[in-house]
């Protein structure tokens, strides 16, 4: 990778690490609540769809997913190295490719809502 790419990936990693640190545990509590089948009337399609259809809702969802993906991808690249996988170029293509795919899916889904 060219040296000039580094600040971009590092910036996304740091921003993503901060966002996931603040936001993800609370999000998981909500999905765990849904997984337990509690509050069936809270997780209505209408309510959640309305949030995702709102422009600010779209922006929040996009921001959280984008930063989570690129944070995880960058750290996974380093983690692969720490576990003894030395094929860094391949690893980089796979993890950043997954992050790019997830970002694209998010854009498509948000545009369809």
């Amino acid at each position: 990778m060219a040296k000039s790419n580094k600040p971009i990936f590092w910036g996304l990693f740091a921003a993503g690490g901060t966002v996931t640190a603040f936001v993800t545990p609370a999000l998981v509590l909500i999905t765990l609540f849904a997984a337990f089948g509690a509050g069936m009337d809270m997780f209505t399609y209408e309510a959640i769809h309305a949030f995702a259809a709102w422009w600010l809702g779209k922006l929040i969802i996009f921001g959280v997913i984008l930063l989570s993906l690129w944070h995880a991808a960058h750290r996974l690249r380093v983690t692969a190295h720490d576990f003894g996988i030395r094929a860094d170029t391949v690893v980089a293509y796979v993890v950043y490719g997954l992050a790019a795919l997830g970002t694209l899916m998010t854009i498509v889904y948000l545009l369809r809502i």
């Binding site: 996931t20 999905t31 769809h49 959280v64 997913i65 995880a72 380093v78 983690t79 998010t106 948000l110």
Partner: peptide, 29 residues
């Protein structure tokens, strides 16, 4: 470092949720 694997997987769960939301009430259910 390993927390990133779980964050990656969970983010894809959120993306699946978003996809089902786009597909309509039946898919979301």
């Amino acid at each position: 470092e390993v927390t990133c694997i779980f964050i990656f997987a969970y983010t894809f769960l959120l993306i699946c949720a978003l996809g089902s939301l786009a597909d309509g009430p039946d898919a979301f259910q």
